[in-house]
Design a protein around this nucleic acid. Structure first.
Lengths: 138, 138
DNA sequence: AAATAAATAGAAATGATTTCTATTTAAGGG
DNA sequence: CCCTTAAATAGAAATCATTTCTATTTATTT
């Protein structure tokens, strides 16, 4: 059922494959959506009697740090994660459905014309760069 | 000292010009930076003996809703506001200095090549669209 | 100057996220 | 397959940004 390549990748990094970690991965593999820690927790509690929210936070962050998940920025300023499609050859940004959480990639080269993409009705969009300005670099 | 055109605009909307609101506007007018509510509060407390943080939050949000300030998305997922340069003819995104908070505009049409802009050393950047996907629109 | 609707301070509540600690568990070696 | 051990977990508690609440004060209009 679960992606064996993914499991192998994690084992190679000495990350233990616990039932809950499998369940989290399965959730993301089943749906092309981003989830908040709380949403993931909601799913896990259907399958596991005991299930701590802090573990969910910890595992999502762990997966993100190992390139399995990616953090999604939304205007509600909450934490969201989505499966990371790490095609290094395809730099891309994200387009999120505010209803179902579906995440689609936006190739960087069409950002200015993003309104025309993939049948999404865009409600908000923003580009944000963080860096060091010329004055502060000195 | 303070921008009279801005004051007039607010009065026209029946927004009271209190000393603290003036001080908040003055802060944003003096520096081309984004500020968190907490940072604004820090400035105000130098000038006013009594000064509530909730008032700062309320006023920043008020200014944002009237197009005077704009919300800035940063990866720390905290609230930030910056002066809104509402040139409707110039659609733009934002580039933020993580050190001093300086905000510069990025014309939308150069986003893919944004690395080359204005002497900023870019640390992170992302584009994010929120909307409704085709499936959910039905 | 008085009336009034809006703005304020300060305390308290909220809620997402993180930290802490004792207990449990996955993985690898025998 | 059982043991060992380092890592993962649950659950409680702490943290901290943000919001709500309420009585008091204030900017504006008359």
């Amino acid at each position: 059922m679960i992606d064996n390549q993914l499991i192998a990748k994690l084992k190679a990094k000495h990350i233990k494959i616990t039932p809950k970690r499998e369940a989290i991965l399965q959730l993301f593999l089943n749906r092309e959506c981003c989830f908040s820690p709380d949403q993931v927790w909601g799913h896990l509690r259907k399958q596991f009697k005991h299930c701590g929210l802090p573990s969910v936070y910890r595992n999502l962050e762990l997966f993100a740090q190992h390139g399995v998940l990616t953090k999604i920025q939304k205007t509600d300023r909450r934490l969201y994660y989505a499966l990371c499609k790490d095609h290094d050859d395809h730099p891309h940004y994200h387009m999120i459905c505010v209803d179902c959480g579906r995440v689609e990639d936006v190739p960087t080269n069409i950002v200015p014309e993003v309104d025309k993409v993939k049948g999404f009705k865009i409600l908000k969009h923003f580009y944000q760069a963080e860096g060091v300005c010329q004055q502060c670099a000195n």
